[in-house]
Design a protein around this nucleic acid. Structure first.
Length: 275
DNA sequence: ACAAATACCTGTAAGC
DNA sequence: TGCTTACAGGTATTTG
């Protein structure tokens, strides 16, 4: 599932392919793709040039030359895939199933939004991003001082706090488990139970794991859902210590990785290496 | 203020 | 083999 490293990989791909290009057409056919306002409002960005591609947590920001911002969230199954110009049209390749939107950049080609589970969304907003005001700092900017105050007194499990976008923006289930494993901390520990040194180690581990995952272009799981803009898989799953590895040996101690139930969700951990 | 449960959705895996 | 059920996940919303 796309989390910060996957969204950042997509952001860099998009920047390389479409920065400075003019959006000629934006066609949205998915009935659930635009939920926060009328879908017709999206036509306001047709004719605008793409000035910058940004990211806040898992949200992609297409910033246009008039200041409007198109926000895209891939949620669980969303993909943004580059296609040659005219690919959606008459002759030649048909669009793949679950294609809900097409951005036409003229000679630079098309960008197709494909999302089988239809949880992903598009919306148009202004540069002050009021819809994203609730997000905490981007997880790549995590510091010991910030985490210490964010976790202080919290009884909720550490993993629940790591995936809470109001605490830090960008971490989901995969990277929360990998961060806990790398930091040697059990995911179901109350967030407020960490000692000062553990909080500091957690902060540096968050940044290190996410940066390593960006280098590996993200994680593509067994369902093959995550793809970059050119349709290629990521490779960070090969470096996973625990996520998706139930029963397989912990890379540090060889003990079998276990999966523990954590409320409605679950977490992977090595009982021997994490405390 | 915080914590936990739930709805949303579809492809896939596991179960009978 | 074929059918049914459970599960995966991020976020907004509701409930406790």
């Amino acid at each position: 599932m796309p989390e910060l490293p996957e969204v950042e990989t997509v952001r860099r791909d998009l920047s390389r392919l479409y920065l400075g290009q003019t959006l000629q057409t934006l066609s949205v056919t998915g009935p659930r793709t635009v939920r926060r306002h009328a879908a017709e409002l999206l036509s306001a960005v047709e004719g605008r040039a793409l000035r910058r591609l940004g990211r806040r947590g898992k949200y992609l920001l297409f910033e246009w030359d008039d200041g409007q911002i198109l926000v895209v969230h891939l949620r669980m199954s969303g993909q943004l895939l580059a296609r040659a110009a005219g690919a959606a049209g008459a002759a030649g390749a048909a669009t793949v199933p679950h294609t809900h939107a097409v951005l036409g950049f003229g000679p630079a080609g098309e960008l197709h939004f494909v999302d089988p589970r239809t949880f992903g969304e598009f919306f148009l907003t202004t540069s002050d991003l009021p819809e994203l005001a609730h997000l905490g700092p981007d997880a790549l900017l995590a510091t010991p001082a910030y985490l210490a105050q964010a976790l202080a007194g919290r009884r909720a499990p550490l993993k629940a706090l790591l995936v809470d976008q109001r605490v830090l923006a960008g971490i989901g289930s995969i990277y929360a488990d990998e961060i806990c494993a790398t930091a040697g901390l059990r995911p179901f520990r109350p967030g407020g139970s960490l000692r000062r040194g553990q909080v500091a180690r957690l902060a540096t581990t968050i940044v290190a794991v996410l940066e390593a995952a960006i280098v590996a272009r993200g994680s593509t799981l067994g369902d093959q859902q995550y793809r970059d803009v050119l349709g290629e898989v990521g490779h960070y799953q090969l470096e996973h210590r625990v996520y998706g590895r139930k029963g397989l040996p912990c890379p540090t101690c060889g003990a079998p990785v276990e999966r523990v139930q954590l409320g409605a969700k679950s977490a992977y951990q090595c009982r021997k290496c994490q405390h």
